[in-house]
Design a protein around this nucleic acid. Structure first.
Length: 660
DNA sequence: GACTAACGTTTTTTT
DNA sequence: AACGTTAGTC
């Protein structure tokens, strides 16, 4: 046995031992949920369940990696490798890579991610005459995604312009044999729903299914699970309705609130002993969350009694807020040798981090940023992946169109449009049109024609190498040289550090490719993983020492001894859009998630003023603060605090004087 | 077709 | 204050 069942509390033990039939584990924040789930999986192996038949689905890559790691500590490496532990989206990709042809796509489909989508949408906005209406691609993408996740046909979108863009978008994706993130779920479900042979195959394969962070699942994902699980319904879902913070993305709390309706007679197990936070922190959290109406009643008990009272400090402005947090962290680090990693600063929106980052740099505090926007679009990586995908299969339009003129090689937007139009006319891929020498010669100027032919030759050359089993990393090296990509990229960087970072990223890809086994299917897997993995720096971030700056959303599932919850103002923490959308409860859950990240020390702050794009704006404290029991925290005003500090310094100076 | 300069807009959360 | 987009030029 790879774990000690006696180290678990009775509830956790019950969870571990409930292997057969539907199981609902209601696991409050910090109650050892991951521990219970990973032990449960290890226990399954002890019961002679084959590792191949175990499927564990998570919501984020980070969670999947963590679970894989923790399970890996308890079972043999061989067993760990045989299990399937992945996100919903990568599960769908796996299903679809095997059988998507049954629902009308080619198996070589590509995945259209953020920048692919917005690129296409911007073109369509222009085409549909929406440029005057100041529509942003992000808006359209959000509307499309909402519709898809609620299974509303795009043809039924109310706004005419949005509708026509959405419909054209879907048509174009289809023509490019590409799926966006939502399509992955939709088509996987369709595949399972419509093809009983496929359904039977996967039901036979995955006999024991576990779903983590179940409160985040959508109606769509629920249907997918129902197809995937059959009698005797060995499905175990783990979650906490109080931590449901992805409603805006289609998460249905009903899935967890009414689990019985989907799988009858589940064993319900409640994990209510919180091992993470001190009693005083937990009291605050409980006081907050009880203001929400729709929830499974539960009482979190603190394992760690007592503890320091959380602090609430009012700040004159965001500058002072950042300054204060940075200074206090630095002092504690110096005075008590508290390692940087123990501190985290939590905020509602990505834009709030800027000031904090500045302060950290000024005080020379090492920090790591999680979930910042700038992080997301790693153009160089996506470009390189697109090149590799094109070399694997040039009929894949999405990656082809991405790199056709990146770096610029004389095939501009107009020429590209002509190529696409012709491809749609012929019902073929763009690549096939490029191969048609007669068409190219007749349509384009000599200059453009040559550019196209050169690109075709270049691609064919690399394809041939791949066929001859030249290692991917060698091909990669060659394409870097042939395209002059690195030089072009560096020319487009503003700062030296940016140059460094981007170049480094490119060579990191080469390193990972050189570790890759030979063969097309391995490369395919690698590319799929890259497309779905926005978490990118697996090792980078975890190993980097420093204070964590993180959004509330990204902080779910994590814990820190010292937590700073900053920017607790109306408009930010209940976010101003939540009032219009009627999602105040979700904002409160977000606050709850923030509080429950803290183990020993929690410091909350709000500002009287804040600089919003240059302008000074006044703010009022969050409505959630008024809901807290006054005895539950210590309130201080920034001015008082500074006066105290000054006093202490005066006193110290006085003492020194007297001594001398 | 590619590059530069000036303009205008912007901030929720993410697979 | 910073970013992206647009229009104008080579």
């Amino acid at each position: 046995m790879g774990f000690n069942i006696n180290k678990l509390n009775p509830e956790q033990r019950a969870a571990v031992e409930a292997i057969h039939g539907p199981v609902l584990i209601l696991a409050g924040a910090g109650t050892g949920k991951t521990r219970a789930v990973t032990c449960r999986i290890a226990h399954m192996l002890d019961q002679d369940i084959r590792p191949e038949s175990i499927l564990a689905v998570t919501f984020t890559n980070k969670a999947a990696n963590e679970m894989r790691e923790r399970v890996g500590e308890m079972v043999t490496a061989k067993a760990a490798r045989a299990m399937t532990i992945c996100t919903f989206h990568s599960l769908c990709v796996r299903l679809l890579r095997q059988d998507i042809d049954k629902v009308g796509y080619k198996k070589s489909f590509s995945i259209a991610t953020g920048s692919d989508q917005s690129g296409l949408i911007s073109q369509l906005i222009v085409k549909k005459g929406g440029s005057k209406e100041k529509i942003k691609p992000a808006q359209v993408i959000s509307v499309i995604s909402q519709a898809k996740s609620k299974s509303i046909p795009l043809e039924e979108i109310e706004d005419e312009l949005f509708r026509s863009i959405a419909v054209a978008y879907q048509k174009e994706l289809r023509a490019r044999n590409a799926l966006d993130f939502d399509d992955l779920l939709i088509l996987a479900e369709k595949l399972l729903a419509e093809h009983s042979s496929v359904r039977a195959k996967f039901r036979e394969y995955f006999r024991y299914v576990t779903v983590d962070e179940f409160q985040d699942t959508s109606a769509q994902q629920m249907r997918l699970l129902q197809h995937l699980v059959s009698i005797p319904y060995n499905i175990c879902v783990v979650g906490d309705d109080d931590q449901s913070i992805y409603g805006w993305r289609g998460a249905e709390v009903t899935n967890i609130l009414q689990f019985e309706k989907f799988f009858e007679n589940p064993k319900v197990i409640r994990l209510e002993t919180n091992y993470r936070s001190s009693e005083s922190i937990l009291n605050l959290a409980n006081a907050t969350i009880k203001n929400n109406a729709d929830r499974r009643e539960k009482t979190l008990r603190a394992f760690k009694k007592g503890g320091e009272l959380p602090r609430l400090i009012s700040m004159p402005g965001d500058k002072e807020e950042a300054e204060f947090v940075a200074e206090e962290i630095k002092n504690r680090h110096l005075d008590y040798e508290t390692p940087w990693e123990r501190f985290a600063v939590l905020f509602r929106t990505n834009t709030q981090i800027r000031k904090m980052e500045e302060a950290m740099r000024e005080h020379e505090i090492p920090y790591r940023l999680i979930g910042a926007q700038s992080f997301y679009d790693r153009r160089e990586i996506k470009d390189m992946m697109a090149y590799l995908e094109v070399i694997m299969d040039a009929t894949a339009d999405v990656p082809l169109l991405r790199i056709m003129n990146t770096p610029p090689r004389g095939i501009g937007l107009n020429s590209t449009m002509l190529l696409i139009d012709q491809a749609r006319l012929r019902n073929s891929s763009t690549w096939e049109v490029m191969l048609d020498e007669v068409f190219v010669k007749e349509t384009f100027s000599k200059k453009v024609g040559n550019a196209i032919n050169d690109f075709v030759d270049f691609t064919l050359g690399l394809q041939e190498k791949l066929d001859q089993e030249v290692p991917a990393s060698d091909i990669y090296e060659e394409l870097l040289i042939a395209t002059g990509y690195v030089e072009w990229l560096k020319n487009n960087c503003k700062t030296e550090t940016e140059k460094h970072q981007r170049e480094e990223a490119i060579y990191e890809v080469k390193d990972s490719l050189s570790r890759l086994e030979l063969g097309l299917s391995k490369l395919r897997e690698y590319l799929d993983k890259a497309a779905l993995d926005s978490d990118k720096d697996d090792d980078d971030l975890d190993n980097k020492p420093g204070v964590t700056l993180i959004t509330l959303h990204a902080s779910k599932g994590l814990e820190y001894p010292n937590v700073y919850l900053v920017g607790l103002e109306n408009g930010f923490l209940p976010h101003k859009r939540s009032a219009e959308e009627g999602t105040t409860d979700e904002e409160r859950r977000l606050f709850y998630v923030g509080i429950t990240r803290a183990m020993d020390d929690l410091c909350m702050t709000y500002c009287a003023t804040r600089t919003k794009w240059g302008q000074l704006e006044s703010c009022e404290p969050s409505a959630f603060i008024a809901e807290l029991p006054e005895a539950g925290y210590i309130f201080t005003d920034h001015a008082e605090l500074m006066a105290e500090v000054a006093d202490e310094e005066d006193m110290a100076a006085l003492l020194r004087e007297m001594k001398s």
